[in-house]
Design a protein around this nucleic acid. Structure first.
Lengths: 338, 338
DNA sequence: TCTGGCACTCGTGACCATTGAGTGCCAGGG
DNA sequence: CCCTGGCACTCAATGGTCACGAGTGCCAGA
């Protein structure tokens, strides 16, 4: 196990490197931090830390920089979560209040998060699988054409056109609407299929084709729209990656455009508590030199979706984690109110 | 006026520079293009072109590169619109067919456009101001809570919660729904306000508060949601900007995140025909070294929205214009079908 | 009006010496 | 046993010099 002081040295290295973006040497360390020992001693500690794989030197005659493993130790053992300042909290409030609909909430959140952390922000829309049905509406637009509108408790609305095999009367449609709603309102999406399973049978022969088509479309919508959506922002912050950003930015931009990748990334994060993935811990190659800080958010106890930021492994972890957590909490509150 | 040959020289310079990304000299020009004259002659022509401001030399002893004015002349007089190859057209078809809803259409379009042009693609959602109302639905979720759903002819759905001053009965609500729809279905958004103006008066005293609240919300939704949305993609292509891309990319990314800027940009484009804005012709500073190729698209004769690409001024204009135009046409068809 | 020739400019890349931050190691002291 | 100061070494970065070559402008001649 590493001695107390060696951990302290690692912390100092991480802090300095995050600040200056340059390899940090033994002399500079002793000058900037009150370690109470001489550079030579620090050198020995550094050698030990390097043996253990926590730090590395880019060139033989250069200072040390933390490795992914070093950041991992720093995050797990050495760093807390820095709470936001009061002005920052107030800014969050001001910024998120006044959102008019779900799109707006997500949009504001992503901008806010990008601004606070000065990194790329990713916000997942509240997931449909975990949401419940607030209402199902059926509108007859033409004799054999019905529009299906699905409204969720998170305020999301999905709609589909249904071309019916046969015309259906207003009465039958109203009947279907009523029965459908009485069965599924307030229920979770995942439960809907079995809840509507035998609904077709209770209709007149002539309407059954249409009813089953409508139901099929509903189920299809549930499945399709369970594909989760997300919004990203603050990509301009990618230019703050460091001097080698021209090399790094491309794969990152590509990864950010692949929503599948990002969704998987967020999906890997724990449901509760904060998840930090550092460098090569990220499965996707393009993100091997980035860290992802993600956390779930929701209106109640349970997380309905996740949000987070993507930044260089050389990031201010305590500050970023603090901002991410604070934003997630406020968004949860906003969602609960609506 | 410039002689025929000088124009030919300018065309050659543009083509070579776009291809090689390096200043092009007189000797290389005569070798790669059959101009039928010697380098010395070309040098004289170049000097003339430079006097006129169509080309410039980055350093005294370097070749020439086109200026914004040079590209402008090239686009206006020298370049046609390169039609897409048959495989490319087929690819567009395959890619856009099978879109399930409006989000999907726009999403596919933006990816397609980014891929075809290898540049940043911007697609505006069909504008609400130019669309018509397909249906207005009112749902009673709680005694004094109504959900307003607005469906447009382009398949877009907007919803709002309305907190009513007093409970309203199902009958009155159905009545309102029917009258509202009979007045506004098929009408343009811009006409709706005057169409519903006197609707409140025809209701019972007790319901008037609620009715006017609902109508107010409807009008508000129309105004608010007229703020147009758009989708962008292919930002990874920004890395193809050239050797100095690290300097250019930041302001461009920032501009791309400001939807207002992009909307203004597209708004400046002509409604019909293609618009090309080159370098400093773009009002926004961050886009001073980019060109924007934009075109309107729509289901009928009239454009309901615009789409385009943002790329370096050094771009393949004929190819890009061809791709943009082709995609716009196909998207128009898709929208017309649905 | 075009062409070939010629002198000139200047960015590029190779080569080299210098500098300085940083290291590893070792002998000595608390 | 651990810490410290000293010392030799490494090596990236800096900056200067120099030759090269692509490209230019200009001019005289066809």
């Amino acid at each position: 196990m590493l001695s107390e002081r060696r951990l302290e040295v690692l912390r100092a290295i991480v802090q300095d490197y995050v600040g200056t973006e340059e390899p940090v040497g033994s002399k500079a360390l002793t000058e900037r931090h009150r370690l109470g020992v001489s550079p030579a001693t620090v050198r020995n500690d550094m050698a030990a830390l390097e043996d253990e794989g926590f730090i590395a030197q880019p060139h033989t005659s250069a200072g040390r920089i933390p490795t992914d493993k070093g950041y991992r130790l720093f995050v797990d053992k050495l760093a807390g979560v820095k709470p936001l300042s009061t002005p920052e909290r107030r800014a969050i409030h001001n910024f998120l209040d006044g959102a008019v609909d779900l799109d707006d909430v997500v949009g504001r959140t992503v901008r806010l998060l990008a601004q606070l952390t000065r990194q790329v922000a990713v916000v997942q829309y509240p997931s449909l699988t975990r949401s419940t049905v607030r209402h199902v509406e059926l509108l007859s637009l033409a004799p054999a054409r019905v529009m299906l509108v699905l409204i969720t408790d998170t305020g999301r609305v999905e709609q589909r056109m249904v071309d019916c095999p046969a015309p259906i009367g207003e009465n039958s449609l109203a009947d279907l609407r009523a029965r459908l709603n009485s069965r599924v309102v307030g229920r979770r999406f995942a439960d809907v299929p079995q809840l509507v399973q035998d609904l077709t049978d209770s209709f007149e022969q002539e309407d059954r084709g249409t009813v089953s088509t409508v139901l099929a479309t509903l189920l299809e919508t549930l499945v399709e729209e369970t594909e989760e959506r997300l919004m990203i922002g603050g990509t301009a912050n990618l230019t703050r990656f460091g001097h080698d950003f021209p090399l790094m930015i491309r794969p990152v931009l590509e990864a950010l455009e692949e929503q599948v990748v990002l969704l998987k990334l967020l999906g890997e994060a724990k449901d509760s508590g904060m998840t930090v993935r550092i460098g090569h811990e990220n499965a996707h190659e393009g993100l091997n030199s980035t860290s992802v800080v993600a956390v779930g958010y929701g209106s109640g106890d349970e997380a309905v979706a996740k949000l987070g930021v993507v930044g260089p492994t050389r990031m201010d972890y305590p500050g970023t984690m603090g901002a991410v957590r604070a934003v997630a909490r406020y968004v949860g509150q906003i969602l609960a109110e609506s």
